[in-house]
C-alpha cells in the first residue's frame, strides 16, 4: 500500500489540484482517476517533521504522511460550534482558551484540585506523535500531534483503588459556543484506566508544532489513536478518576450506533455504513481500515475478546 499526497502544499496548488481532480473524474472515468491524480501530485516528498513513534508490523518502512494543516483545521466535527464540517473553523474563534484551567478530581484521585494548563503541561515533556486518525464516519487523516502523555497527568492526580475509569468533560458555554448544550449538557467522554495509562494516549496541546486551534479542541484535547474520533474529547475542563463507567455523549445520543469502547475494527460495521474501509481526506478512493486503527501491537492486550461487539462500536 502506498501513501500518496504531500504534507505541505501551497494553498493555490492544493486548490488547483482539486479542480484537476474533478476534471479528471469527469472526463477520464474512474479507472484513470488515480493515474491522473498521481500525475498532478507534487513529486517532492516532504520530510516528516515529527518522529514516527508508532508503526505497523510489516509496514515499518512506510512513513505516515501527515494531512495538510489546512485540511486538519477546516474539516472538523465539533457540534458545539455547529454540525457542518466547516462550521467549527468559522465559528470557534469566539472560544477563549487562555487562561484555562482543568479540574482534576473524582473519587479515584487523592490529589484533586484545579490546575492551570501551564502547570499541567509543565509537569511533563511535550511529545510529538504522528498518528492515524479514524472517524466513526469512515473517513481518516494522519495528524502530527504535540502533547503530553495522559498517564503523566493521571499519576499527578495520585490515583487510588477507586480509579477504574477516567471521565473527560468538554467546556459547554453558550456565551462562547453557538451550539452549546446540543447534547443536553456538556460533551462527556471516557476511558478505562488501562486505556488512559497506555503510552499511546495523549492529551494534545498542538498540531504541526502550532498550538491547537479552537476547532481542533484548544487548548487541550484527548487523543486515543486506536479508537474512533468521537472519543477524542476536546477543550477539556474536567478530568475525573471514577469507579463507574462514564456515560459518554454519543452513547447517550444513540445507544444502537455508538458505544463506550469505540475501538476501530473493520469487521464490525456501523449500523448505517461499513467500517471495512475508509476515505482518506484529500485523496480519491478508499483504503482498508486496520484493526485498532493499526495499533493492535500496542493495545490488543486490553481487549480479551475480539468477537465481542461491545468493544467495537
Amino acid at each position: 500500500m502506498s501513501i500518496k499526497s504531500s504534507a505541505i502544499t501551497p494553498e493555490k496548488v492544493y486548490k488547483r489540484r482539486r479542480v484537476l481532480m474533478a476534471a479528471g473524474a469527469g472526463v477520464l472515468g474512474v479507472p484513470l482517476i488515480n493515474k491522473a491524480y498521481g500525475l498532478f501530485q507534487d513529486k517532492q516528498e516532504v520530510e516528516a517533521p515529527f518522529p514516527q513513534v508508532v508503526s505497523l508490523p510489516g509496514e515499518k518502512n512506510q512513513p505516515l504522511i501527515p494531512t495538510p494543516y489546512e485540511t486538519i483545521t477546516t474539516y472538523n466535527n465539533y457540534y458545539e460550534f455547529g454540525v457542518g464540517k466547516d462550521d467549527p473553523s468559522k465559528a470557534a474563534k469566539t472560544l477563549t482558551t487562555s487562561p484555562w484551567s482543568v479540574d482534576i478530581g473524582g473519587e479515584g484521585s487523592d490529589k484533586p484540585g484545579r490546575y492551570d494548563i501551564a502547570d499541567i503541561k509543565g509537569e511533563s515533556a511535550i511529545e510529538n506523535h504522528i498518528y492515524r486518525f479514524r472517524c466513526v464516519e469512515a473517513w481518516s487523516m494522519v495528524i502530527p500531534w504535540n502533547g503530553i502523555k495522559l498517564s503523566d497527568v493521571i499519576k499527578f492526580a495520585l490515583p487510588n483503588s477507586k480509579a477504574k475509569y477516567v471521565r473527560f468533560t468538554t467546556i459547554n458555554d453558550p456565551q462562547q459556543m453557538p451550539n452549546a448544550g446540543w447534547a443536553g449538557g456538556p460533551y462527556v467522554e471516557g476511558l478505562t484506566i488501562e486505556e488512559a495509562m497506555n503510552p499511546l494516549t495523549l492529551l494534545s496541546t498542538g498540531i504541526y508544532d502550532k498550538p491547537l486551534e479552537q476547532q481542533n479542541g484548544a487548548p487541550i484535547r484527548l487523543v486515543v489513536p486506536w479508537k474512533y474520533g468521537f472519543k477524542y474529547a476536546k477543550s477539556i475542563v474536567k478530568i475525573e478518576l471514577v469507579e463507574k463507567m462514564p456515560k459518554n455523549t454519543w452513547w447517550l445520543q444513540n445507544k444502537r450506533e455508538y458505544g463506550f469502547y469505540a475501538n476501530v475494527n473493520p469487521q464490525f460495521s456501523h449500523p448505517r455504513w461499513t467500517q471495512a474501509t475508509e476515505r482518506v481526506i484529500g485523496e480519491l478512493g478508499r483504503k482498508p481500515t486496520l484493526l485498532y486503527n493499526g495499533y493492535a501491537q500496542e493495545v490488543a492486550h486490553l481487549y480479551p475478546d475480539l468477537d465481542n461487539r461491545l468493544y467495537f462500536y
Binding site: K15, R18, V19, M21, A22, E70, T71, T74, Y75, K85, D86, W139, R279, I281, G282, L284
Partner: peptide, 9 residues
C-alpha cells in the same frame, strides 16, 4: 464543494 477539504462528501 470541490474547493473544500473533502470533495467527496
Amino acid at each position: 464543494a470541490i474547493m473544500g477539504p473533502d470533495l467527496v462528501s
